[in-house]
């Protein structure tokens, strides 16, 4: 009945969309003028997005006698940022925070242009998040230590899993004893018969896949191998 749907863009639409999707400039590009200095005495620290270099050994991985350890910890570095980096207060009044800053480095001395640099990016990008700052949110729920099993409980898990693996699955035992499934697997691995049956079931399921699903799965495996090589 109706003709083909044609996309219509008018001046009103364009302007409305422009206004609604307008984004504020990056914080690093917003000039943060130092109160005491001249108008242009600030540094725009807005490096292009790039992955960190693996040849830069993190501070935690340096051996205790490495001279870089002292340099990173005491000198001005991304390991040694002022602790109020996440402060939402405009830097214009940064002079008022003199007493909060413990270390006296170039980057932590208020009123200097270098100090402003540290405020222009989120704390998670720093090599070491300052102690008072909030860490970025974890990807998954925080990993918690599981309940410690007593020796009797360990023996019981082992006995049940070994003697009657059909009725005592890993998840069942983990729920029963209040520990993780990984711990159950570590205490007693499944008998060969159960493992073989599992592989058989999985292969039967995979054999029922069509060509598209199989190809997608194979491509994912290839990609996963590239992740592990970081290629």
């Amino acid at each position: 009945m109706s003709g083909p749907r044609i996309q219509c863009r008018y001046q009103s639409t364009f302007r409305r969309l422009t206004r609604s999707t307008a984004m504020a400039g990056a914080p690093s590009l917003r000039s943060s003028k130092v109160a005491s200095g001249p108008e242009t005495s600030h540094i725009i620290f807005n490096p292009p997005p790039s992955t960190p270099n693996v040849h830069h050994t993190p501070l935690k991985f340096l051996p205790p006698n490495d001279p870089r350890r002292k340099l990173y910890e005491s000198g001005p570095s991304l390991y040694n940022l002022p602790s109020d980096i996440n402060s939402p207060i405009p830097r214009r009044n940064s002079q008022s925070k003199v007493e909060n800053v413990a270390t006296s480095t170039v980057m932590s001395t208020p009123g200097t242009a270098l100090r402003e640099v540290a405020f222009s990016f989120p704390a998670g990008l720093a090599q070491r998040v300052p102690q008072n700052s909030r860490l970025p949110p974890p990807v998954r729920k925080q990993w918690s230590y599981e309940k410690e099993l007593t020796q009797e409980e360990v023996e019981e898990v082992r006995r049940l899993r070994r003697d009657d693996p059909d009725n005592n699955s890993v998840n069942h035992l983990a729920y029963k004893f209040g520990c993780s499934d990984k711990l159950v697997k570590a205490i007693q691995s499944a008998p060969l018969r159960i493992k073989a049956a599992h592989i058989e079931r999985r292969e039967a399921a995979m054999n029922s896949w069509g060509p598209k699903k199989r190809k997608a799965w194979e491509d994912l495996q290839r990609r996963k191998e590239l992740w592990a090589r970081d290629a």
């Binding site: 992955t51 693996v54 050994t57 993190p58 070491r128 990807v139 592990a228 090589r229 970081d230």
Partner: peptide, 27 residues
Amino acid sequence: HDKLGEGVGASLLEAKTRAAVAALKGW
């Protein structure tokens, strides 16, 4: 509070794996 490695990915798992790989390479 120390960052060991950082990774970019199209999924959370990919980014996490790449970050772990970067950390191990750093070591």
